[in-house]
Design a protein around this nucleic acid. Structure first.
Lengths: 220, 220
DNA sequence: GATTGCGGTCACATCATTTTACAGTTTTTT
DNA sequence: AAAAAACTGTAAAATGATGTGACCGCAATC
């Protein structure tokens, strides 16, 4: 899922927004029309929409309404229009905020940070059955808490943060145990086993923590 | 008593406000008319009113007046009108703030936080059986006062303010004892034990102050 | 000047975690 | 198919963190 979907038909503005937001660390998609926006939203999803009201084809209001119909994705509306009706309309339709063109990029970024924090303030990583809470250092499997020891937690966290990547044993070891550690690399195996015992249905046929033969392990 | 009573005849705006404020952790009631507002206010009470001036039936001004007659409940007035009379009127009638439609939800939330903090600065943290009063530095367990020494109090306060988080021993120590302190980190253990002795039914099986092995402690 | 109590330290018991060693198993290579 | 390499399982040992009670010194209080 993308972080932010910018819907803006004026290419320069769209690109500028993209650059600024990407610089803030967000994963940004850019749609130049309502149709394209719906397409991207359907295929990629988005955590936040930045929406220009005046669009060719499907206009911003309709788009806002349609997206709000089946998801409560937060929306920030941008518009050059100045009459009050738009503002009201936008807010009533469920937009979380309204900003006028020409807009202050810092204000927009501040608003985005605010919304993202309010809505997605989660130090959680969720993946299927498994939920990991960085704050409390608790891990849940199908809603049930699974007690994790410090190293197990760190290892799982690192693997989930790098979901899908094949991680070299050496790298994993350095990440969790630190460079200076003079423990045997064998230790890693044992901890992988512990994790599998706790998280896999059948630890003989691991689904989440897979072995990449000759390399290391991969979480998926 | 409810935290906030929203008086707004436009259902969409009322609901939107409700959702946002509830997300901020407030207990929100919503009245769609002046009459309903008075009813809810009489039966439930409220710490803060958010009041749309333009209402069917009893209008906002009258409502404001009537509520201010026998209570100094803070009131934030919302209005689409822009002429100055309203603002003056509203403020004279005792409203604590005035905000124009279309309003910036972040601004409104900021104002609410401010008023709540100024007016109802409780200086209390309540969590289940345990109540902690920052002002008097007293702690109550099931209503009974439990004598706490300075360091114990500071430690408990910090842990309760970070409820649910796994707090590193090092961080805890720096917070309570300060960076320069050259006391032994072991001291922390001892104080944790003191707290458990005072607060836990069975200090062998702590419910509130949990050990996070290899990391530190967690209050929950 | 004696008393009291808090905050800190220490030593040791206890316990959870991590490591190790080694045997067993699977996979890959020859 | 046999050999080699890589991985897994297991239990015991080592390590290190935590819990606990006793004790000490200082400062406030009487």
């Amino acid at each position: 899922m993308a972080d932010i979907l910018v819907v803006e038909d004026m290419v320069e503005i769209g690109e500028m927004l993209h650059d600024f937001l990407a610089a803030e660390g967000y994963d940004v998609y850019h749609a130049a029309s309502g149709e394209e926006a719906l397409e991207i939203y359907a295929s990629e999803g988005a955590k936040l929409l930045i929406l220009d009201i005046m669009l060719p084809g499907i206009d911003g209001f309709s788009l806002c309404k349609r997206i709000r119909q089946n998801a409560n994705t937060p929306i920030i509306i941008i518009s050059a229009r100045t009459n009050k009706d738009d503002k009201l309309n936008g807010l009533i339709l469920g937009a979380d905020d309204y900003i006028e063109k020409p807009f202050d990029i810092d204000l927009l970024i501040a608003k985005i940070h605010g919304i993202m924090k309010r809505r997605y303030a989660t130090d959680e990583i969720i993946d299927g059955d498994i939920r990991l809470d960085k704050n409390s250092r608790k891990v849940y499997l199908k809603g049930e808490e699974v007690a994790m020891r410090a190293k197990e937690f760190d290892l799982l966290l690192y693997m989930m943060e790098n979901k899908g990547k094949a991680l070299k044993k050496e790298d994993l070891f350095n990440k969790i145990w630190g460079f200076e550690s003079d423990s045997e690399p064998q230790t890693l195996n044992v901890h992988i086993k512990y994790l599998r015992d706790k998280l896999e249905e059948d630890s003989k046929k691991p689904v989440h923590i897979q072995t990449v033969w000759g390399i290391g392990y991969r979480y998926e």
